[in-house]
Amino acid sequence: MQDIDVKSLETAFQDRIDQEIKIEPRDWMPEDYRKNLIRQISQHAHSEVVGMLPEKNWLTRAPTLKRKMALLAKIQDEGGHGLYLYSAAETLGVSREEMVRDLLSGKAKYASIFNYPALNWADMGVIGWLVDGAAIVNQVALQRTSYGPYSRAMIRICKEESFHQRQGYDICLQLARGSDEQKRMLQDAINRWWWPVLMMFGPHDSASAHSAQSMKWKIKRVSNDGLRQKFVDQTVPQLEFLKMTAPDPQLKWNEERGHYDFGEIDWDEFWNVVKGVGPCNKRRLAVRNKAHDDGAWVREAANAYAQKNN
């Protein structure tokens, strides 16, 4: 009897999704839908938070006050994005405390891209342009995700993201118009970030563990390979405008497909970074843990003050 009930609930649930009716927090949902969403949204939130770390290293070394203020505003936005997403995940019954604990212990995953080092100022330009650019392609698609709170968070995030990408490209433009040394710096940064950025879209659809079900539930709206192609197509003209190149001899326009062809990602590197042996995995977690510990006295003081006034 119970099985039949769950079956009919599941059918009704899938019907709503097929009709593009959003699922809201207190609606019935399959346990796996809930679990998958918590995993995806919390990973996304962790990525926003860890993503602040490579950039904050450059705040004190920004070349001008204008660049410093823009970078600071961008980083502040990313903290906000983390918060919107943690809040969306909390509506599914997971606590903030749990999510933060899983991030700090290394149990939770976040976007591998932030485990690569930001070596010089050109990296601030390339991160804003390419890393945020890739994130935007993913997030624009997720605005139509089936879970209401997640979709609303994505809409808000997308509104704020385009400034991030433009300030990054603006840094790249200035370097591209600068001295030979500045041009070399920019090309070097592009060479280092290009492949890791393409990896941001995840494994091929055929090798992606969660893809098929997530697409059916509309937790994901466009496949990994579809998003990656979209990103390459829109980025190449921007790359050419800078008179820079990508470190990929196979990158070229395919008239027949109406898309750019590009080479194969080094999947061994991809899985290594995912598994935690990337260049900065340890450092990022150590810095995040230290920041959390250093802030403990603030949280304690706020609690004591709130209690005193109660």
Partner: peptide, 17 residues
């Protein structure tokens, strides 16, 4: 949206930010 705060004043300030 929503946020965590120790008290109402902090909630307003965080919401502003």
């Amino acid at each position: 949206g929503s946020l965590h705060a120790a008290d109402a004043q902090m909630a307003i300030e965080n919401a502003r930010d």
